[in-house]
């Protein structure tokens, strides 16, 4: 198993799937030169040529829509959006067209379409370049929504996305591209959708986190362990489909749940998870479900304000302490 970067894992997943299936194509802004903004298509143009990897104009509605056209005529497009914020120019193509065509054609059309988006805070990119839209995407029937936290998950889940016959929004986090981790070399390594990862076992509380929030969740669990509190950490990995059973099983064991996400609190996917947990595990809960999220504000540009807005280990510890009715002791 090689230890590689998250960005490299994404590139390798695309390369392997392009070798495996000649119907896989890549397009997006600047993907032909410099490997795109985050280097995820580095060296791919040399191997696959301009017929299969193509830079597009600054025209999100056009190339997101073109991806749909390709998908319904038998190709398996991977479309890269430079920043997720730019999807707003193409929401009609994504929401009214791509997500609905399978249903509106009475199932006659399939849309094997992977939309890779780069999102998240951490670089002081401000209100229009640091958003997280996984909650928004998850609210659209017909879209699958993936949020990988590690290089292995990025590779295994992206390969599954490319092989899926439905539109998948693959939410990469810009602060994770440079992180490294062990990734299986097997070209058929895939990770199924709807299967959560149990990252740390515990018995006193369950912390649920995805993507860039996994690291502070694990750090919080470490800190809690020093206080004698045993926290379980679960990463759902895909918001749609959701491994609800894994979350419920964990809460049945611990009796407490804290949900962490970088997307905004109001109508964030944490609210949906909390509802489902209380619906199925109400009698096991010893405290209300807690959420640790970004506030209902545009992401601030100033680094100190951005940092204050994004969940960190200390906030997660405090939330767990609150579920234990020990919040006065929280750090």
């Amino acid at each position: 198993m090689a230890k590689i970067k998250y960005a490299t894992a994404i590139r390798d997943a695309m390369a392997e799937e392009m070798r495996r299936d000649p119907r896989v194509f890549v397009m997006g802004e600047d993907v032909e030169r410099f490997g795109g903004v985050f280097g995820c298509t580095l060296d791919l143009p040399e191997e696959f040529g301009p017929d299969r990897i193509r830079s597009t104009p600054i025209s999100e509605a056009a190339f997101v829509g073109a991806g749909l056209g390709m998908a319904i005529t038998g190709a398996r497009p991977i479309v890269e959006l430079q920043y997720v914020d730019f999807i707003m120019c193409a929401m009609d193509q994504l929401v009214n067209q791509t997500a609905k065509i399978h249903y509106m054609s009475n199932g006659k059309m399939t849309v094997p379409y992977t939309l890779r988006v780069q999102q998240g805070c951490g670089r002081g990119n401000g209100a229009q370049h640091a958003q997280n839209f996984e909650s928004l995407f998850a609210n659209i029937p017909g879209l699958k929504v993936v949020c990988p936290a590690t290089p292995a998950d990025a590779k295994g889940l992206l390969k599954t996305a490319i092989r899926d016959n439905n539109p998948v929004v693959f939410c990469e986090h810009k602060m994770l591209y440079a992180t490294r981790g062990e990734v299986p070399d097997d070209p058929d390594f895939t990770i199924p959708f709807g299967k959560a990862a149990l990252l740390r076992e515990g018995k006193d509380a369950t912390i649920i986190a995805t993507a860039y929030m996994v690291a502070p969740a694990l750090e919080a669990a470490d800190r809690l362990a020093k206080e004698g509190i045993s926290a379980e950490v679960i990463d759902p990995r895909t918001i749609v489909p959701l491994d609800e059973d894994a979350l419920v099983r964990s809460v049945e064991k611990t009796g407490r749940a804290v949900i962490v996400h970088e997307t905004n609190e109001f109508c964030g996917f944490g609210a949906e998870l909390a509802f489902r947990i209380q619906g199925r595990a109400f009698k096991y809960l010893d405290a209300p479900v807690e959420r640790v999220t970004t506030a209902q504000i545009p992401m601030p540009y100033a680094r100190n304000l951005e940092k204050a807005n994004v969940p960190d280990a200390a906030r997660i510890v405090r939330a767990v302490m609150k579920t234990l009715y020990r919040d006065k002791e929280g750090s």
Binding site: D30, S55, I58
Partner: peptide, 11 residues
């Protein structure tokens, strides 16, 4: 020019 190429190449 558009970031990575000429307008003629990109659009």
């Amino acid at each position: 020019y558009i970031i990575s190429s000429t307008t003629y190449e990109v659009c």
